[in-house]
Design a protein around this nucleic acid. Structure first.
Lengths: 134, 134
DNA sequence: CTTGACCTTACAGTTACAGGAAGGTTTACA
DNA sequence: TGTAAACCTTCCTGTAACTGTAAGGTCAAG
């Protein structure tokens, strides 16, 4: 199948597939007589694997590691588990950071009248607030 | 004061301050005889304003709008409020997305033995899972 | 035989900076 | 007085993970 069909089935864009080939995340696709890339079910599976891994938050470096594990017959599942748990912790940390930012925003908004006048607690906060005004 | 002192007081790096000047987010600093940038308390206030706005999640485009409001004597506080509430919603959406990703990771990890063997529910999940396995 | 939908490569642009090179200035100290 | 550290300057490159666009080749339908 051609690249757009592989894209459709894997959940990646054709652009992204070419990019992954470029950076040698995946092996170069075989080519038809016309020079078009050709994909079989196995190739699509790998692309789908990557799409899923990206979806749950792994960056391309980590995807590379996951793919290596996926290909390695003598792998140890604890390696994959470690990657997953580490990523989970990273997401957790990021969530906490975002929530804290959001709370600051909510606090700002609650103090601001939000009317037609120029007086604005938000802008005052941003201008003068010390590091911790929760 | 020189740039590194302005950096220290504002919470931005010297690199970042020069960058903000480059992209015309802030006015070019006045220069001393030696060509060094000079900052006064007012300039530092603006830098600090930017540092705070970035801290709570605004991108540079939004910072530009906030700065315009900050400078505008005939501003309407509802404009700032709208920016803040919109950003808050964006953060909220992002948090929900990250939490959902994290839940998938946790589910994967819970199914994986994580031992020395090659059998791995995580890699199987990534390889074969359909779009919704929560 | 042409039109539209594919495909190709290659290069620029995105965000918000950080790092580093090459060189000028200032300050402290021996 | 010399010099070394610690500033400062501009300019260029690199980052992550693509997306957009240009210029052009290919294929299938009508």
């Amino acid at each position: 199948m051609n690249i757009s069909e592989a894209a459709r089935r894997s959940g990646l864009s054709a652009k992204t597939i070419r990019y992954y080939e470029d950076i040698e995340l995946i092996a170069p696709a075989t080519r038809g007589e016309n020079g078009y890339r050709q994909y079989d079910a196995k190739a699509v599976e790998e692309l789908h694997f990557l799409a899923r891994a990206r979806d749950v938050g792994f960056d391309l470096h980590e995807c590379r590691q996951l793919l290596e594990l996926q290909r390695d017959r003598s792998r140890q599942s604890r390696h994959a588990r470690e990657l997953v748990l580490e990523k989970s912790e990273q997401l957790q940390a990021r969530v906490e950071q975002l929530v804290s930012m959001q709370q600051v925003l909510q606090a700002m908004a609650s103090r601001c009248r939000g009317d037609e006048g120029p007086e604005c607690a938000i802008l005052d906060d941003l201008a003068h607030a010390s590091k911790d005004n929760r």
